[in-house]
């Protein structure tokens, strides 16, 4: 059995403290950063911001200016969208999920939904100025992150296109189109 990490001088010689190790592990698990080397992950860990949110505390509101993405390290986050009937729960995100990543690439990004802590949670914020700093200081690392981000965005665009195509092929839409044609001919 190995010596306990807090025993006497063991802490003094450990390369990182456990909080930083945990942070690196969380980042490593994320699809956006999974191609980064350990050295790059350590560098990234110095740039991101850990924030603790209490239950029902807003992370951001709809129409807030978006500055970056958030990654859930612990807890759950509810994504809500206001409608004329009231606020609607769009989805609940779990540990390891991330949201708001479009703000990293969109210059005039406005949040299109609100994010609220569903329970006490720890969120990791990664913001555009820091991504720009990475691109300036460590271009290879920046390209890796941007490539993963573009892969995610591309996949999501494909999914949306397929969903629209499915909707237009559905029987309801087909009958609606037939109805429109009949109206035009009459």
């Amino acid at each position: 059995m190995g010596a306990h990490s807090h025993f006497l001088w063991m802490d003094l010689f450990s390369r990182e403290n456990s909080a930083k190790r945990n942070l690196i592990n969380v980042l490593k698990e994320n699809v956006l950063f999974k191609t980064l080397s350990l050295r790059e992950l350590k560098y990234l860990a110095n740039l991101v911001y850990e924030r603790v949110y209490q239950p029902n505390e807003p992370i951001f509101q709809q129409n807030d200016r978006g500055l970056g993405m958030y990654l859930i390290a612990k807890g759950k986050v509810a994504i809500k969208s206001p409608t004329p009937e009231g606020e609607v729960l769009v989805t609940t995100l779990q540990e390891g999920n991330f949201f708001g990543e479009i703000a990293l690439v969109d210059p005039d990004n406005m949040r299109s939904a609100s994010a609220v802590a569903a329970e006490r949670c720890m969120i990791i914020g990664f913001f555009k100025p820091d991504l720009m700093e990475i691109l300036e200081r460590k271009p290879t690392m920046g390209v890796k992150i941007l490539f993963q981000l573009s892969t995610i965005l591309g996949r999501r665009l494909l999914e949306t296109t397929e969903r629209i195509a499915q909707m237009t092929r559905s029987p309801i839409h087909s009958s609606l189109r037939r109805g429109e044609r009949l109206e035009k001919t009459s």
């Binding site: 969208s81 991330f98 609100s114 999501r156």
Partner: peptide
């Protein structure tokens, strides 16, 4: 985006695969 509330996905999460 105000006039398109709820249609954008920047505030939303990664897909199920991700």
């Amino acid at each position: 985006n105000t006039s398109m509330s709820g249609t954008g996905d920047d505030g939303l999460s990664a897909s199920d695969d991700e």
